[in-house]
Simulated assay, not measured.
Amino acid sequence: DDVLVPSINFLPYSFQLIILANAFYNLKVDYKELSLEQKNIISNWFWFTSYTEIFSGASDNEVKKIIDNFNENFKNNENYKHFKRLVSYDFEKNFSYNFRSVKTKRSILYFLKLFSENKSFEETKRVVSILQKNGSASFSNILESIELDEIDNKFYPTIANKYINAVDSSVFDDIYNSKYLDLFLNESIISLNTSEDVEITEKISFLESRFNKIYNIEKEFYKDIVDISK
């Protein structure tokens, strides 16, 4: 609830839930009685493990160190301290968004967090409900696939499927019915989906500008969470 994960399908790593449940069990923690400080420690650990991808390719020994570090830090009310130094932001611009990937899920969850900070509780709740019910089907391309075929540079197709297709029969508010919602930039993008007058070059320019914004926002967030864990 605190990091607005709509369902287990949105978790970047199943390890995160298992390790957290294990810590609660061993330390006899009732999650309903978590303090704000404890919630912040967990949230920072969640974002750190998601954005640094520390479980990807980790050996059994490294996973054990991550578990031991988290348990020790949580027990002592300290933010997670990683056992390796991390200095670079590994987020390639030719990354292909795929709902099964860690990168895609962490981006969705982080921008959902930013969305919640700018919208009312009810608006956030509706978007979370849409994601919860529809999962990967909530997301669709900004441009039609036939248009994407015209773009040679892989850079552009990789950023063209990050819109929520906000169609939900249980929601009656116009903003959520038969429209597209840009979760990542907090606005509607219906114009790009309906206007046939927009040249492909203009669409490419839009995609590039949008991706650069997303890239820089996540880069700053990565820097912040790494700094906390030092």
Rank of each mutant, 00 (worst) to 15 (best):
K103E: 11
V5P: 11
Y25H: 15
F55H: 02
N76E: 06
N153R: 03
K162R: 13
Q132W: 12
I146D: 08
F155M: 02
E220F: 12
I108R: 08
F155T: 10
N9M: 13
F15A: 06
E208V: 09
T104S: 12
F155P: 06
K162Q: 04
K32M: 12
F48D: 00
F155W: 04
R100T: 03
A58Y: 03
V5M: 09
S229H: 00
F115Y: 09
S195L: 03
Y13S: 00
I217P: 07
F48W: 00
S101C: 06
V167I: 03
Y215T: 04
N186F: 15
L143Y: 00
K154S: 08
S116E: 05
K84C: 13
K223C: 03
E37W: 13
F83G: 01
N73P: 12
Y51D: 06
K64G: 02
D197E: 14
K28R: 14
F172S: 05
I228P: 05
Y163L: 07
N118I: 08
D168M: 06
Q38Y: 13
I217K: 14
V127W: 03
S96V: 07
E92G: 11
V29Q: 13
V29S: 15
N118Y: 11
V87M: 14
Y51V: 06
I67F: 04
E117D: 10
Y51H: 09
K162I: 12
V128N: 02
I54E: 01
L185D: 15
I217L: 14
D2E: 11
D149V: 00
L148I: 08
D227G: 04
N94C: 08
S129K: 04
I108A: 11
S169I: 05
Q38M: 09
F74M: 12
S88A: 02
E150M: 02
T158I: 14
N79V: 00
K125F: 14
T158Q: 15
S35V: 10
I130F: 00
K105Y: 01
L112V: 08
S209F: 09
P6S: 04
N134M: 02
N186D: 14
D168H: 00
I8L: 15
V127P: 02
I41D: 07
S136L: 10
S188V: 09
F211S: 11
K28A: 10
F184M: 13
N118E: 15
T49P: 02
K113L: 10
L148K: 11
S14A: 13
F139Y: 11
L143R: 00
R106E: 05
I164R: 04
E144W: 03
N79M: 00
K179Y: 08
L112E: 05
E33T: 15
V5H: 03
N22M: 14
L112H: 05
Y222A: 07
R100G: 04
F48R: 00
D2I: 06
D152H: 05
S7T: 08
D2A: 12
S56K: 10
N118K: 12
T124L: 13
I142M: 14
I130Y: 01
L27Q: 14
F211H: 10
T49H: 07
F83T: 04
Y215D: 10
F211N: 07
K213I: 11
R126Y: 09
I18Q: 14
